[in-house]
Design a binder for these strands. Sequence first.
RNA 1: GCGGGCGUGGCGGAAUUGGCAGACGCGCCGGACUCAAAAUCCGGUUCUGGCAACAGAGUGUCGGUUCGACCCCGACCGCCCGCACCA
Length: 873
Amino acid sequence: MPDTASPAPNVHMRYDFAEAEPRWQRAWAERNCFRVADVPGDGRPKYYVLEMFPYPSGKIHMGHVRNYTLGDVLARYKRACGFSVLHPMGWDAFGLPAENAARERGIHPARWTYDNIAAMRAELRRMGLSLDWEREFATCDIAYYGQQQKLFLALLEAGLAYRKESFVNWDPVDGTVLANEQVIDGRGWRSGAPVEKRRLAQWFFRITEFAPELLAALDGLERWPERVRTMQAKWIGRSEGARLSFPLLTPADGIDGIEVYTTRPDTLFGMSFLALAPEHPLAAAVATRDPGAERFIAECRRLGTSEAAIEAAEKQGYDTGLSVAHPFLKDEKFPVWIANFVLTEYGTGAVFGCPAHDQRDLEFARKYGLPVRPVVLPPDESAADFSVGCTAWVGPGTMIHSDFLDGLDPESAKHRVVAELERIGAGRGEVNWRLRDWGVSRQRYWGCPIPVIHCATCGVVPVPERDLPVRLPEDVRFDRPGNPLADHPTWKHVRCPACGGAAERETDTLDTFVDSAWYFSRFCSPRAADPLDRSAVGHWMPVDQYIGGIEHAILHLLYARFFTRAMQRTGFIGVAEPFAGLFTQGMVTHESYRLADGRWLYPEEIERQVDGSVVERASGAPVIIGRIEAMSKSRRNTVDPGAIIARYGADTARWFILSDNPPERDMEWTEAGVAGAHRFLQRVQRLADSIAAAPTGANVPILFSRPAQALRHRTHQTILAVTAALEDFAFNSAVARLYELAGAIGDAEREEGEGLAVARREAIEILVRLAAPMVPHLAEELYARLHPGTTSLVAELPWPEADPALAASDSVTIAVQVGGKLRGTIVMPPDSPEPEVVAAAAAEPNVARLLAGRRVVRRIHVPNRIVNFVVAG
RNA sequence: GCGGGCGUGGCGGAAUUGGCAGACGCGCCGGACUCAAAAUCCGGUUCUGGCAACAGAGUGUCGGUUCGACCCCGACCGCCCGCACCA
């Protein structure tokens, strides 16, 4: 039997993370370390740190681990710095996968969702995140979506929500409508199915009303990545131009003119044709009596605009036979075409074609033999021989063949022609936006019911306050396609609140992006009887630091910005912008592995041979190492955080994920990296235990020996460096500084001198406390071992402060250059006078050798950094 | 096509923003301990020449500004991301 006697003080106690981590998690919970009030009265400055809340798929993935670790480091650090920190967690719980589970496995969406939440909550708790769990909610809680219905009605009343019939993006696989933002490369963002166009009555949020301020306010979001701001700006898409109308020479079908939007009114005299979108009302009217037009329009619809963008760069058109007059060229008439490249949603759904100065118009004109008339003469060209070949001229120049515009530059010509159009009443200057109103109707069960009632006599009637919330029925069937709410035998049949007659509930539910467009403000007062408590959101909002994936750069972040403004206008909140700071983390990647037959293997199914090759563990078959790419189930290059935490502990997972590289970049998850992180944490633990066991003597020594001083200097410099790194989100640099300090403590173990024991105890304690935001459990454990009997928790301690005297260096190393090349270094007291530094530099042996016999023409001295002798020749 | 970002050892990356390029980690090489291995500890590790001191080259390429450039300017090459018939 091994010796089982109690360990001697200098024998290292093993740190059992599996026992210790849950123990410290309980300790934090018992002391309510992370709880804050809705409206705190303690006068501490507030800091709201939020990570994008997860969809409850059932298991956390490494992306979650990275996201929540980053946020947790920040939350713990800010708390130590004296902030009162709001750090909540919840669940983005409505959505399609729950309905798919219901269809495929017969589980009720609610059951599936809440089971998943329970499983994921346990995994998140195991990570030791400093969350205020009392604020937790799921968006599928009636307490949440019921409040959301109140917000919807407020928006409806304010005219920010409305219903209209329109062409919508229809996802034939998911059987629902998608917002423009949810169509990616012509396909549904979830299903990947090609999107079709359908005409349906839908609910919309009037996000376009805020387009100017959503764009303008981007400039003020200084703590947002430039990338995200430019993406949003492009998405909102402001353009300046003119709207003008072209009268039809022979009014047809009750339409006597066509409105056109253009950003190039200066090229109006270069007009060659007018083109309508296939969905334009006049095109539809023509189609009723022209089978050719009807066929053409049907063909365009079949392809769909987005699909056509991919397939057919080819322009196609159909001549309606109609013509329009020109506002200035009175003797001329221009043909009206239907063209597949004209978008119905942008501008007026009709354009005038100026082939000489627009590439699309040029391609169209060449194909159908339409005239090409240049009106902008490029610099260095002569009007006599300038002609347009197969490339339109879109650059600067001088206006020609343009009557009263001749001689102007295009920019001045724009203003001039707009003024003229306004004078004769044919058009006006107009700003246009790419942003469309946000379609929020979804023909789905597992979402927030839209709280309105359709009455044959009264129209759309809001559900009265007393009848809220509109609760989802629980007894629904998923054995038929389509919306189970519409299919429900009784749920939708109600009395009209206005006239008392028979009426029907709206059966559409809200896009789940609505749920995530305001959850951050609900976290301020999650149990309030109203959607938001004014004083709570007044205290906590905006979110000081929001952290999440770049994939939400447009959709979620733009919707949240809009919805906050809408809530501001309807009086629920006092701020316009929800997120003062935004940090977008990189993805977690991993090598991928596949067998010769193409089958992908999970990392745990492979084995690395001594020669570096890889085989399948079960069969010994050779494995091809694939690309390092984002973890995905289809490539099986995922690593389960639960398994990592079980094997190495939460602290190791956190430490590795922080140490590998800067958090905004993609990181590669490697087995070697995790093992290395784990080794380091064990080393810190051994250091702490040996120091805890060593006597320090009764008193602090009066005199510290040279090595003791050096260690203290390093310790206090580390405080400064780690603090700066954390402020900068440079967690990998913070980690590097802590490695250095651990190395210095280890080195000091081999030294001797007065005060070393005290210096080492100070160093390890500082190390533990600086590492605490990153590895909170180990920090608590080691702090407790260093202070037997303490009742303090590191989670409650203030952030260490550097002693300026100790942090200051008593010497600096100055580089010495000769002719700009490094030739040696000298060590001097800081801020030494220039003559002394230069003299010492010149005396440095190698420098002196190289200066011998050469004329120094100039001496550059940068204090504490460099001396450069510029020599002649 | 338009917009944004990025190019530094075998790898991830650092460099106080114009002042010692390669911190720190991974990997690799060598050593100590061990019967041996693991673990741990110590040392080395940009390239070339040299026992060394040291010298030369070096931050995608070419050029420029500067006493001095990974950093600033110009041109180009490559990679990543976003948008894309937006009139």
